[in-house]
Design a protein around this nucleic acid. Sequence first.
DNA 1: TGCCGTGTTAATGTTACTTTAATATTAATA
DNA 2: TATTAATATTAAAGTAACATTAACACGGCA
Lengths: 225, 225
Amino acid sequence: MIKKYKILVADDDLDILEIIKFNLERNGFDVTVTNKSTETYELALKIKPDLILHDVMMPEMDGFQVCRKVKHSEVLKNIPFVFLTARNEEHSEVQGFDLGAEDYIAKPIKPAALSTRLKTIIKRYVKEEELPNLNVGIFKIDRDSYVVYKNEEPISLPKKEFELLYILAGSPGKVFSRDDVLARVWGNDVYVGERTVDVHIRKIREKIGEDFITTIKGVGYKFIA
Amino acid sequence: MIKKYKILVADDDLDILEIIKFNLERNGFDVTVTNKSTETYELALKIKPDLILHDVMMPEMDGFQVCRKVKHSEVLKNIPFVFLTARNEEHSEVQGFDLGAEDYIAKPIKPAALSTRLKTIIKRYVKEEELPNLNVGIFKIDRDSYVVYKNEEPISLPKKEFELLYILAGSPGKVFSRDDVLARVWGNDVYVGERTVDVHIRKIREKIGEDFITTIKGVGYKFIA
DNA sequence: TGCCGTGTTAATGTTACTTTAATATTAATA
DNA sequence: TATTAATATTAAAGTAACATTAACACGGCA
């Protein structure tokens, strides 16, 4: 499962919203938009975005007000808040605003740059939980190199097979239903058939041997060490 | 990656700020400006500039006061602090000020000269971290000469190819995503497409041989020793 | 000025991974 | 052992990811 970052975008210009949404989604973000800054806070509470991208100049509430409100919320205050500013607006005003370490992006927006920039900002905040390498029985499962060692023999697995084995081997003996596996390897919003899991299990068994993953009929699969 | 130096500029004249900002940015600096000397210190704490360029004569706090404050901060005291002085101000006053090894620049400013001058000053302070040469398997990667030796055979690589190989070979076996590579070789604020990495990998493989960089589909590339 | 080397992009080709669907096999149980 | 449900197996279709090539832009330099 590739972590899909959620971005909340607020701008009163519907065209800009459209452009941003289109481009970010094409780059694998999960995008929610609003054209009313009064809604930003409620929306943020609801969807818990990984980043808020907010126009500075908006009717009713400006970006600074929204930012302050967000930063006073226990739940939301750790979400990076990025300002969108028109080129001729006062950048210094943004810079002077006590943002913690917030950032700002100037319009007009360069789509290619935007995704990269946001990813960088998110990564700075959300320190990816480092998933540990595993040592289970005769197997060593090494995420750094995407290689599984059976005793000393290196076996290279493609992504899905690797992640599936990683989940199973992470809790040896525990049975995972196909639904569990799909949720954890494919993610909660990807819908593929359950038989797909069977096929991947087949591939893994071919590569690491038949004796390490057992089937519990009517339940699912488990890894045995 | 070319290190992009951050300059913090303080001057009460907005026109001068504009000119300086424009010219420094054109020369590849990352520029933050303020027209309030009372803000300099806070801003510096926030953005950690590589150099502070500060007008001497400013309302509220003059440059000397700001400089003193900065030099008393554990975090900031190693940042070079450069004074901007009007031609008819007392240079001797600046020279007499106990600056450590600070510098000053006289207005009116010659844009072309400015960038060069600042670069020189920064380099004097910021001793570039010395990256070590690598010996990995049959390869020797020599930063001094930008040459890769495969056994004894010297292979000359252009900059980007060299840096890319250097990153990969620096952690043999570890998989680097294209994003990782872009961040580390191109830097966090340069936006080129991911396919660019593929092309460079191609060039490197052509030169050092096909068997040393492996592709992990869906993940990235790794160097094997 | 024109050429060469480097870096980037875009277009196209190719590979191999993923998913599905069809069929076979196995296990439970009556 | 016949029936059924569940899983295994396989091949084929679909797709995503990567490889390759060519074209262009740009700067340095003869």
